[in-house]
Amino acid sequence: MNRSSCRIQLLARAFADAIPSVDERATHSRWRPGIGPFEEENQIKMIREEVEQRASIGESIKHEQPYPNSNRRVDLLLDDDGDLLPIEAKLIRFRRDNGNIDPNMYKSVFSPFPERSSSTMLTDCQKLVESGFGFPCGVLGLYYEANDEMYTNLCAEGIAEKFTLDVKYWYDIPIETVCIEPFDGLRHPHHQHGAVIAWKITEP
Rank of each mutant, 00 (worst) to 15 (best):
S4N: 13
P189A: 08
E40I: 07
V196T: 03
N2L: 09
H188G: 02
L154T: 04
G82I: 08
M46C: 09
Q53V: 07
K127I: 05
Q53N: 12
E49K: 13
W199C: 01
G185Y: 09
N100D: 15
V167Y: 02
A195T: 01
G58C: 06
C125L: 05
F110A: 04
Q126H: 11
S118F: 11
I159F: 10
R96I: 06
P182S: 03
D166Y: 01
N71S: 13
R25I: 15
R30M: 13
T120W: 06
Q9A: 14
A198Y: 03
V139D: 04
C137A: 15
S5K: 14
R3T: 15
I47N: 03
E64C: 08
R13L: 09
F15P: 02
R54A: 15
E145Y: 07
F110N: 01
Q192K: 12
V167D: 01
R7W: 06
Y106P: 02
V139L: 15
I47E: 00
R25A: 06
G34I: 00
N42S: 06
E64F: 04
P86Q: 00
F163S: 00
H191Y: 00
M150E: 13
A12R: 01
T123R: 08
R96M: 14
M1Q: 11
N98E: 13
C125E: 03
D172E: 13
D184L: 04
M46Q: 14
I175Q: 02
R187I: 00
N147T: 12
L142M: 15
R54N: 12
Y143L: 14
H191K: 01
L142G: 02
I92A: 14
G138P: 01
E59V: 15
E88P: 07
P182Y: 03
K200E: 15
C125W: 05
E39Q: 11
D148E: 14
M105L: 04
P136E: 07
P20A: 10
A160T: 03
I92L: 14
R48L: 07
L154S: 04
Y151T: 11
G185V: 08
E130A: 13
L91E: 08
F94R: 06
C125D: 01
P68D: 05
I87L: 15
E59F: 12
S119F: 05
H193R: 15
P66S: 11
P114T: 08
F94I: 07
Q65F: 05
F133S: 07
N71H: 12
L77V: 11
R13W: 04
E59D: 03
K162Y: 11
P136D: 10
P66K: 11
Y144D: 00
N2C: 11
A12F: 04
T123Y: 06
N100Y: 05
E176K: 13
H193D: 03
M46E: 14
D97E: 09
R93I: 02
V167F: 01
I47G: 00
I159P: 01
P66V: 09
K127Y: 08
V22K: 02
M150G: 06
V74D: 08
Y169A: 10
N153W: 14
Y67H: 14
H190L: 04
S70G: 13
S29Y: 10
R93C: 11
E64M: 05
F94Y: 15
C179K: 09
I197M: 07
G138K: 03
T152A: 12
D23Y: 07
Y106T: 05
K127N: 11
S118A: 14
K107D: 08
